[in-house]
Amino acid sequence: MGRAGAHGRAPLGRVAVALDVTWAVKWLTLSAQAMAEHRVELIELDRAIGDSDHGENMDRGFQAVLDKLAEAPPQTPGAALKLTAMTLMSKVGGAAGPLYGTAFLRAATSLGDTAEIDPAAWAGALAAARDGIVARGKAESGDKTMVDAWTPAVEAARKAALDGNGDVLAVLVAAAEAAEAGAVATDPMVARKGRASYLGERSAGHRDPGAASSALILRAAVGAAA
């Protein structure tokens, strides 16, 4: 048997993380790094079924987020997400701008002034973000869009928040893994929304770039807490 962790909540050797503003800023910073690292990959995915600007746009958008965070350091996780929303909507340019912008904005609204996010609040913020994406983009599950990464992530986070005994890292991990599986599951789908839908059957066999970038962002949330 392993040794009991501090307060009996987290296993020893893993510092119990607080999802506070420091974590939020680190999450966004790691997201920006992920967009820069995967820029070419996202461009390639988007070239196959879209207009090949997704990697470029996301990289530019998140670099602008980093500048804004440095200019006006936020005081709460919600404030950090709202700043991100505003910046992405202004700097991304393509459809990902208002979609991610709305996602971050709704998540920020859901979190309010909370200083530290607990598992239920994280699951709630993800659900609010997903609902925002659905409202803005009018896409449903199975349309080969970022919704196909977000909806499994929301469900996994909810389940982990209920089962997890207050372990917030477990909720972050569950969401990230479900988003990654959801992105992979878009490969065989035929696109019904966005530019890719013009390709019809020819869109099958390629991963949706928005689902791929969504998975990267939710994975960065784990990295920021590890």
Binding site: M86, M89, G93, G94, A95, G97, P98, L99, G101, T102, L105, R136, G137, G194, R195
Partner: peptide, 14 residues
């Protein structure tokens, strides 16, 4: 079209 409509809708939220 497309993201222009979404950006306009977002502006209403802000």
């Amino acid at each position: 079209l497309g993201s222009a409509v979404m950006t306009a809708e977002s502006a209403l939220e802000f």
